[in-house]
Write a protein that binds this DNA or RNA. Sequence first.
DNA 1: ATGGTTGTGGTACAA
Length: 267
Amino acid sequence: MRIASWNINSVRARIGHVERFVKEFAPDILCLQETKVADDGFPTRAFADLGYSAHVVAGQKSYNGVAIFSRVPIEVTGGRDWCGRYDARHISVIIPGDIELHNFYVPAGGDIPDRAENEKFGHKLDFLTEMSEWFATARRAGDRMIMLGDLNVAPHESDVWSHKALLKVVSHTPIEVEHLEAVQQAARWCDAARHFRPVPEKLYSWWSYRSPDWEGSDKGRRLDHIWVTEPLVGAMTGFDIPKEPRRWEKPSDHTPVILDLDPDRAA
DNA sequence: ATGGTTGTGGTACAA
């Protein structure tokens, strides 16, 4: 079973890329972030044509938005409001193998890494804290769960092109890394990327639009993640972050992350 | 050190 997560930065602007990605990489379950469209404007027809018989979307006009499409049976379990506001940043489903899958779009956090000066940064930290508390209290680490999405934090030194240059840049500040680590400890999540590709290998899923030569300069960050709980660690059969979609014309600034999983091998 | 680009929706804001 192949599961992919992709921040596509507008599903309507990127529908052709989604079709190409599905044809070339064939995910059974496709999780999207930053769809940027209200639910009644979502191009669900295109996804049905790609063979996805089930879906759940949670969107709003212009900003945010998450979606899950599946060619295997899913049961929609949620979509929670975080930090007391509906902003379409989370949905969850049960997938085959009795696995609960959570798709998140964590707030980016603005430009200034200080909650006193920048409300968006405070919101990001509070969002991560609420995730920690929720997974520690409302969920059990021993259950089969997957969490994936654009978590907007690059935790390790090898998750960014320059640790030193990014220490004060939102996405890699020590306080954000601490908050993300607290989320990870809340359900003893295993980071699929680093299970297969351990540090210190450099691994990125995002490159800024602002670089005139994103691939040559390679100033990337690993903002997109797939985590699994302990019963699923032995069920993982492969992981990849293919760079091809970032090379396509008019791309998203994120490239997909892909996990292959054999639910029959789950503990 | 600074500014660089993109999508949405409407000429500003979020990323």
